[in-house]
Each structure stands twice: as C-alpha cells, then as structure tokens.
Nucleic acid binder design. Structure first.
Lengths: 246, 246
DNA sequence: CGACGAATTGAAATAGCTCAAATGACGTGG
DNA sequence: CCACGTCATTTGAGCTATTTCAATTCGTCG
C-alpha cells in the first residue's frame, strides 16, 4: 500500500489579491448569500491563498485544525489511514467546494489533504469565520447548508460502496463527477479530464485498481463511454443512467 | 430486500412537559452550550415531542423537511432506497443524537426514518431554530459541531465499508456502538442490548445477514464476545481492538 | 532513446454471497 | 399452560464477483 506519500507541503502564502466578488466559484462558495457590503468583511477574513502543486499536502491527519479551505481551481483529495496501514480516500474536492469540514468538531484534521493538480485555495480561518458569523448570520447559515450537503453526499457514497457492484460504482462515480465539474463550467459536460489516478478512484470506491480498469474497459466496449488515459467521454448518458441506480 | 415497510406513522404529539433543562441527554444535545435563560427560549421552540413505537416511520424519503428530531430515548434508523429497490441503511441514532441533518440543504428528507424501539423524540422546527440562531449564536455554532461530527462518523463508515473485512466491520461496529451507548449511560459498558436486527446490521455494514451471523459466531467462538440473540457482551475489549483497525 | 511509474490484461484464489434448510424465539389462541 | 404459526437467526454447501498475483503495455519525462 501507500504510494501517496509525497514531498512536504510547499505552501506559498500569497496575501489577499483576488476578491470573493470576482471569484469564479463565488456562487458555489461560502459567501454565496452575502451582498456587496458584507462581501468586503468576508474578504478581510479570507487572508491567505496558498497555492499547491500536484502531490503537495495541505494538511496531515492529526494537525491542529485552524482553517477551512475553499478550492478556487484545481482539485484536492482527502484520505485517512487505518492503524493497519490501509488508506481510504474519503473525498474529492473541486472548485467551489470546502475542505476540512470534518475537523470543526474535534479541532484536529482527521484526514490528509493532498492536491491532485496545481490548486489554488482560499484559506478561511475558522475562529474568525465563527466571529464574523455573529454579525452576519447568513454565514453560519450557509456553512450549515454546505455541511448538510456534504452529509448527503456521504450517504450516497455509503450506498455506492455498500450495495453496488463495481460497474455501478464506476458509472455513478462518473456521473457524479460530471455533474460537479459542470457546476462551475456553466452547463453540461460530456468530456471529463480526470484529475485523479486509477488508484485514487479504486481507493475511493472501495475497489482495486485492476477492477476499475476492467470496468472502465467494459463500459468503453459497450460504447457508453470513451476512455483514453485520464480523458473520459460520456458518450451515452442514458445508458450510463440505466446502470447507475440512484 | 424490503421487509422494512410498516404501518404508517402514528405520531402522538405530546405537548411540552419535559424540559431541556432536565433532559437526560442534555449534555449531548443541541442546547448543550446554552445557559439557563437561553434554555427557556430553546424550550419554547421544541414544542412537540413525538413518541414512536417500534417500526413507526418518523418521515419518508421525499417528505418536505420541516424539523430536526433529537432522540430522547429509544433508537432510530435511517435508510435510503435506490432505484433498483436496494435498501441502504445510512445511520443509527441513539439518545442525544439528531436525525434529519442531511435534509437541511435541499429541504427534503432524503432517507426514511424508522423507530427501532419505542422512541421519544424532540421535534425542533428548523425555521424557528434558524431564527433563534440569530439571537443565540451558540445555537448555530453547536449545530455546526454536530454536523461536523456526523461528517467524521460518515468518513469512518466509508472506511469500514470500503476497506475492511467482514470481521473487522463487525468488531468496529460493536465498538462504536458500545461507545455511543456508554455516552449517555455514564461510564463503560460491557453489555449491549442491540436495538436493531441482524438484517439492519448487515445492511448498515454492506454485508449479508448470513455473514453477520457467521462473523458474530466466530467472535464468540474466539471468546471475544458473548452473543445471545440481541444481547452482546464485550468480553475481551483488547482482543476486539486488535481486530478493529481504527 | 531509455527508464520508471501508471494502466491494462490475464489467470488463479478467495471472501463473501446466494440458495436452502434447520433451529430458535415469541406471541396468539385454544 | 401448551400447541402452533410466524418471523428472526443460525448453519451448511456451492457459486461468483472481485481480489490477488503476475506479466505486458502505455505514457511521460529526463
């Protein structure tokens, strides 16, 4: 197991430059409900914007929790390690999504967070977000919504991993991915450039890398998708939907 | 497959009588951070206290979301149904825990919620909780913590279902259960009275009922636990811990 | 071009599933 | 209080989807 280890994080702290107001993922992100005036206060808070390269760690499991991180561009993954050395990928995070939510309660990051590609993040110091929440109730309200959404997503993952066949998991995974990537790309998407390796996919879905490869191959042979390395084309959405039992 | 269908919910609405202040699960529940004065306002809000019998539905997947429900006594389960009729249990809920959190974002209950035993609940109308949150910031703060905790629990479930063997899942499950039941029973617990059937356990852990039965039998044969129907005794915690790789 | 990691493909092994039957627990009605 | 029916659980035996192990192929980067 374990080829995920990588060089230590080289976080370049970039002081506030880009603004939430003009951010490409604004309508997906935390300040979605804030008006112009309140946005300013949010921007004060979002101070550092570390930029990660593929393979860089944002944080390690066990680190003290200080900040949430919103993905501006790129992609992240989070994974835990069991005491017997098994890795379990617990999530992928794309632009507009927030990393670190599961650490709020116990004050410790419970997973490792690693960049899957060059990734820009907004650092949101949690203590300050919490304070600002007293003045701007829209903020905790939106945070609650985001948490709830994440919870629902996890339930779906549980169903996928607990009850579906390998083929179904792959189909659902591709569907879900295309939906999320479409969110911040305007409309529909038929072509996906996977930011994660087969190993990541396998690990996420509770499968082996070989099974992922084989099932992708089958879907390809059936003409439902096109696969070429990390490029995947959803050729027959309806056919895929038939496989994916959500 | 579906033997879970049951008679329609017969929710007996019991008007306020018990108070949060004297509630046995207060230190686990939402108002944990409120002082005496604020507790009053919380109690106004928690108006109805439905009582369910075993098998009663609290809500169905697809129902409009109006309230969260805190478990006072008894136990609940939530489960979703995929389009091909498979059921997936997504959670068990014990005293002090809150049901319905995954419905906040999209305003619809995404799962079915059913009582596993005679169960007393506190109904927390979400709109009013939201309003009250503006005045009492401790409330949304605690809600956030609860959501975050739930998120972390789901990550652990993912790891269990995705990467562990049947025996490991069972061991972890028993561990987790004993911990949660101990929470509101004072201290340690060596004896568990399972409120759920083997079918529920199997469904929760992504196994079949037969495998659950067999693995429980093995653990018993190894002297790690005692099993007699729904009574389980944790005879050798360390031995169990060795199996459970968290 | 050559080398190394990632991905695919193949063949054999297995954990857990499915199907089937036996046993046990429990409430009902005589 | 006992006999019976129902439903939950256990146990058994064979089966299968996925894993494991092993060997190629592909892709990328120095």
């Amino acid at each position: 197991m374990g080829s995920l280890m990588s060089s230590p994080a080289k976080i370049q702290t970039v002081l506030p430059a880009a603004s939430c107001e003009n951010c490409g993922v604004r309508r997906l992100c935390l300040p979605v409900a804030l008006d112009a005036k309140d946005l300013d206060r949010m921007e004060e808070l979002v101070r550092a914007r570390p930029r990660l390269e593929r393979g860089d760690y944002l944080y390690w499991a066990g680190d003290a929790f200080n900040s949430l991180y919103a993905v501006k561009s790129g992609a992240m993954k989070t994974f835990g390690i069991t005491s017997d050395g098994e890795e379990q990928l617990t999530g992928f995070f794309f632009p507009g999504e927030v990393v670190g939510l599961d650490a709020i309660d116990n004050g410790i990051y419970n997973c490792n967070a690693v960049a899957l590609a060059d990734t820009q993040l907004c650092e949101i110091p949690y203590a300050r977000l919490d304070d600002l929440g007293d003045a701007l109730p829209a903020l905790p309200r939106e945070l609650t919504r985001i948490l709830s959404r994440e919870l629902l997503a996890d339930c779906k993952m549980l169903t996928m991993v607990g009850r579906m066949t390998a083929g179904q998991r792959i189909a659902c995974f591709l569907f879900n991915l295309s939906g999320r990537l479409a969110d911040h790309n305007g409309g529909e998407i038929e072509h996906i450039e996977l930011p994660m390796s087969r190993e990541d996919i396998a690990n996420y879905l509770g499968l082996t890398i070989e099974t992922v490869s084989r099932k992708l191959g089958e879907l390809k042979k059936q003409g439902l998708i096109g696969v070429a390395g990390r490029r995947v084309d959803l050729l027959d959405r309806d056919g895929l939907a038939e496989i994916c039992p959500f």
